[in-house]
């Protein structure tokens, strides 16, 4: 099973992955009807349960960058900041969840991490959102291709 997970919050700058997923979801499901798409509001440990059992998981989350807001970046696990490494149940980061999932040997064969650049307080314009959505769709097409979907 292939699962695409938009991670964020319904509110504030952290809602970018939700907004972009809303834009591309109809076309994605039309082109890849067998994939599963879900939205997770700051999932913490729940993320492990959501990726467990999949063959391919794509995590899409907002990242703070100095580059233009809306830029789509495919990230390596090593690029994620997990310096706190506290494994709190209340606030487990994506990086920590991935680490723990790896330790528990429940990571899918293919894991893609996608960041969407944001700058705090700068909401994406509609044009930026459309551009970002197209970039993400293209990137996901490549991921689907690798996953033989």
């Amino acid at each position: 099973m292939i699962r695409i997970i938009a991670i964020g919050s319904p509110f504030g700058d952290d809602n970018i992955s939700f907004r972009v997923m809303d834009e591309i979801k109809p076309n994605l499901l039309h082109k890849y009807p067998s994939i599963d798409i879900c939205y997770l509001d700051r999932p913490g440990m729940q993320l492990i349960n959501e990726i467990q059992g999949t063959t391919c998981a794509v995590l899409i989350d907002a990242v703070l960058t100095d580059t233009a807001p809306g830029q789509v970046l495919q990230l390596e696990e090593s690029q994620l900041d997990s310096k706190n490494n506290t494994l709190s149940s209340h606030d487990l980061s994506v990086a920590e969840a991935i680490k723990l999932a790896r330790q528990l040997d429940v990571l899918p064969e293919q894991l893609a991490i996608v960041g969407i650049g944001i700058q705090l307080g700068q909401t994406l314009s509609n044009d930026q959102l459309q551009t970002c959505s197209k970039q993400l769709f293209t990137l996901l097409e490549h991921v689907m291709c690798r996953a033989h979907c």
Partner: peptide
């Protein structure tokens, strides 16, 4: 922490999950 614990006791963390 739980990450270190999961290396030796993965079944505990699995049960928690």
């Amino acid at each position: 922490n739980a990450l270190a614990m999961s290396a030796k006791h993965p079944q505990i963390v699995h049960r928690g999950l």
